[in-house]
Design a protein around this nucleic acid. Sequence first.
DNA 1: TGCGAATATGTAGTTAACTACGTAGTTTTG
DNA 2: CAAAACTACGTAGTTAACTACATATTCGCA
Lengths: 164, 164
Amino acid sequence: MSNVIDESGLLAISTRLQRLSDQLRKDGLKIYESYGILFEPKWFPVIYTLHKKPVLSVVEIANEIGYTHPSTISLLKELEKKRLIKSKKDKTDERKRLLYLSPDGRILVEKMLPIWALMVKALEQLTNTTNNLMKAIDEVEHQMKLQGFFQRATLIKEHKGINS
Amino acid sequence: MSNVIDESGLLAISTRLQRLSDQLRKDGLKIYESYGILFEPKWFPVIYTLHKKPVLSVVEIANEIGYTHPSTISLLKELEKKRLIKSKKDKTDERKRLLYLSPDGRILVEKMLPIWALMVKALEQLTNTTNNLMKAIDEVEHQMKLQGFFQRATLIKEHKGINS
DNA sequence: TGCGAATATGTAGTTAACTACGTAGTTTTG
DNA sequence: CAAAACTACGTAGTTAACTACATATTCGCA
């Protein structure tokens, strides 16, 4: 830790989070490659979601994975091109397009399950430290729901104003 | 927590980290705006680094902020256009371009210091939960230095192979 | 001391998310 | 029951990082 940014602490937390996310994603890709499987980490949210909830519309998937719907659409396009998912019109609501895993997609998921289990084990090793990262994220997201970063900053500012 | 991804736990940790990073960055921007200051969160690493270490080359800044040098160059370009930083040739090494805060940049930093202090307070509120997020990041990065995600996954895989 | 290796910077193109906007169905309501 | 509001999906363009490649200067050593 000789660099200024790591030492600046909380102010650089957004940068630190992103860096860690990138590292994990890159290593994730390497793990898939080491199994000779063509699977990109960015596909995980959609594929896993459709594995757990077999038929969903575009917006439902977007909500499940926490992306905007345009981002989701471009992911879906890519996965359809790879023939891992398919879609059909919803007969009761013509606006909706329903997505589901193709036979190829389901076969892929079966191959992935043991690899995902392995990844979970490696991630447990990495994150099960004094302060558990996953729990910390849950806790911070909970705090943000109670009151966001912006709102907290505003309140502190006003409080200071009153007292000065 | 009704969605599949949050429930998938560690597998979606990369997604979760990125999402949290984005939220904090967006709120950061809103806080700067609420002070009527034109400052983008992405500028923070460079500006803060040059505040702490007043004269640095392109690659030195890149290392400090943990970005690649091309990313750093495009940030520097933007900041030069905004007249917040300036540069000069290193006389002892003609390859190097030395960056430093302009007078405008130094004035901006002075305005920012109290805002950054405020942000730190708000972030302390948000992250000082049972499992401290900042400490968790430090700990995980330390674990990764000892042995990365890919390497751990490989070892677990081989260990299984031997026993089965 | 001059040449190959290393270092510093820069450019081009890619990627994976985003916002803004538009269109087509569906639901609500006066 | 038609108009307004809403919902679902899609496209276009932006952004902020990246990798790969190119060029210029400096350093190390035979």
